[in-house]
Design a binder for these strands. Structure first.
Length: 439
DNA sequence: AGAGGGCTAAACATAA
DNA sequence: TTTATGTTTAGCCCTC
């Protein structure tokens, strides 16, 4: 067992009056760390006058940016994402990298995020391609995105593990025997509790821009500086990047508005689940999840504790049902997604909001099984039917754009775990396509 | 005032 | 043996 650097009861007693400071428990704990640790920590986290910013419940998050609420929104799965507008509207392009918390003016950079560990873990797992992460990767995700934890006491890792173990929202999945690398198990989100987590997530105050950022996702993308992402967004507002260049969080950032719109539309016609359905067995729900699919065909956790503690209220499950379905279900055909996506982008491309990656995209997925005639293809065909002389060229150009768009949208959707919630819209789009073709 | 959620610390066990 | 991981318990604070 490795030593855990943190506050001991003895050291607590050495901090007179600290416990009496209402709402500053987190700070006093930090401020009373061993001096060696304090010396390595930015002063901002230690100064009492600024300690209020470190408080988890401090609402100064909301005051630091006048347009905070417009800059942040929730992604397709309810995960908080940074809206592209965030980068565009600011006079100074906010740094999305670690430098943002080295700026002493941005106190919030060293502030605690307004998310509980459970939510942070949830976001980390959901942003992973496999919807499963080892503890170490969860650490990394949090460290990469929450500057606070870069300088926080190491006890937060203990808290992460504690949450993983105690919170039944998270399920341990044994690694496959074939996998040699790595210690421990993979952790996944129990789809049964995804709605609860998402609801809890949405209840949180929006973070300040410098507290939640999206760094380059992988070592191979190290050449992609945060400024690159900012500049790209600034130039094109929304633009699709290569999958290797951005992580799922960024992908969801780019896709946010259109997906949310789709989900919102999807929620309308869906009836509420019955109580019986809500009470369906855990094992069924867990096995049902395609989001839990693993590359290594990992076996499921062997022990499932049905205890009801450390859980979010079941009352929220119905409300988020559709969103949950979007992440735990799968489309029967990937093409269906592709056929749907252009419609979303088309709807959003009228100047208001949406997915604007039709042109000038860098997406280059090789293994994309795109079929023909998606919605966008049909839209292009419609324009070509207006008697243009360069009909063929235009059609070809449209098809290229369509393919790029569909590749980008489909891949991003795949990352975001968007699935069956779009089914109704897909079928609607299909029907419309068929009608238009008949015309 | 009490319940519940969340965080932190700590001890311990286990696996790599 | 060391380290990382996982489990459990306890105590505290905060919000409702």
């Amino acid at each position: 067992m490795g030593p855990i650097i943190g506050m001991t009861p003895e050291k607590r007693a050495e901090t007179p009056g600290a416990e009496k400071v209402a709402g500053l428990s987190q700070i006093y704990k930090m401020g009373s760390l061993p001096e060696a640790v304090d010396a390595a920590r930015p002063k901002a986290t230690l100064v009492n006058s600024e300690s209020a910013d470190d408080e988890l419940t401090n609402l100064n998050w909301l005051h630091e940016s006048t347009n905070l609420l417009t800059n942040f929104s929730f992604g397709s799965e309810g995960l908080p994402i940074v809206s592209p507008l965030y980068d565009i509207e600011g006079d100074d392009v906010p740094s999305l990298g670690p430098s943002c918390y080295q700026n002493p003016e941005k106190k919030s950079a060293t502030s605690k995020p307004p998310y509980s560990f459970s939510l942070l873990i949830y976001m980390a797992i959901e942003h992973s391609p496999n919807k499963c992460l080892p503890v170490k990767e969860i650490y990394s995700w949090i460290l990469n995105r929450i500057p606070y934890f870069a300088t926080a006491p190491t006890g937060w890792k203990n808290s992460v593990r504690h949450n993983l173990s105690l919170n039944k929202c998270f399920q341990k999945v044994e690694r496959s025997h074939g996998k040699v690398n790595g210690k421990g198990s993979l952790w996944c989100v129990d789809p049964e509790y995804k709605p609860n987590l998402m609801q809890a997530l949405k209840k949180q105050p929006f973070p300040s821009k410098s507290t939640f950022y999206t760094p380059p996702a992988s070592p191979q993308s190290g050449s992609l500086s945060p400024h690159y992402l900012s500049s790209v967004l600034k130039q094109n507002q929304v633009r699709t990047l290569k999958e290797s260049d951005i992580d799922a969080a960024t992908a969801m950032m780019l896709l946010n508005t259109s997906i949310e719109q789709g989900i919102l539309e999807c929620e309308k016609p869906l009836p509420l689940k019955t109580a019986v359905q809500k009470k369906r067995s855990y094992s069924n729900a867990f096995n049902h999840s395609s989001a839990m699919r693993l590359h290594e065909s990992d076996s499921l956790a062997t022990s499932i504790d049905p205890k009801e503690d450390h859980n979010y209220s079941a009352s929220s499950m119905t409300a988020q049902r559709c969103a949950s379905r979007s992440s735990v279900s799968s489309l029967s055909s990937v093409d269906e997604v592709y056929e749907f996506i252009p419609k979303s982008s088309h709807v959003g491309s009228d100047g208001s909001e949406g997915f604007h990656s039709e042109e000038d995209t860098d997406v280059d997925y090789e293994d994309d099984p795109l079929g023909d005639s998606g919605y966008a293809s049909q839209a292009c065909a419609d324009t070509s039917e207006k008697g243009q002389p360069d009909k063929k060229m235009r059609k070809q150009s449209c098809q290229e754009i369509d393919e790029e768009l569909k590749e980008a949208a489909g891949s991003l959707l795949h990352l975001a775990g968007i699935r069956t919630c779009l089914g109704s819209l897909i079928s609607t789009a299909k029907t419309q396509n068929q009608k238009q073709r008949k015309k």
